[in-house]
Amino acid sequence: MDISGTYLFNAPPRQVWSLLMDTTAIARCVPGCRELRPVGPDRYETELSVAVAAISGDFKGTIELADKLPPQSYKLIVSGTGRPGFVRGTATITLAPHESGTAVQVAASANAGGLIARVGQRLLEGVARMMMDRFYQCLASQLDSGQG
């Protein structure tokens, strides 16, 4: 499953970069995120509650940041497991100046397994895209409201 998107932020890349690295903001904006706990340099443990169609459940997982080139790009490596199955994915995030702000490009590829793949596969991509949209829109709105 490959998904991609571009999100516009009303701030220069350096400011957006620090927002994207801010664990408090991330934890607030990841849909269903209960916790984001640093467990090492650029490595976090997380607990998420996710619902795909009739399947809902808690995922425990890790998030890793890699190949950081501030304020241009980084890689996000995510893996989670829970009763509904597992999700593994990587995303490449690129920041570029866009008019007076920043365009954040996300290119992600993910695999899912278990019940979530078996029963929810037709909705999985839509749910993933929705979660991604909500995440970046939430971050962008934090910037707008001055919280970032």
Binding site: N111, L115, R118, Q121
Partner: peptide, 14 residues
């Protein structure tokens, strides 16, 4: 099955 061996038709919905 998807190439990773996940059964995509895992219920009577599919």
């Amino acid at each position: 099955y998807d190439p990773n061996g996940q059964l995509l038709t895992g219920s009577l919905t599919d």
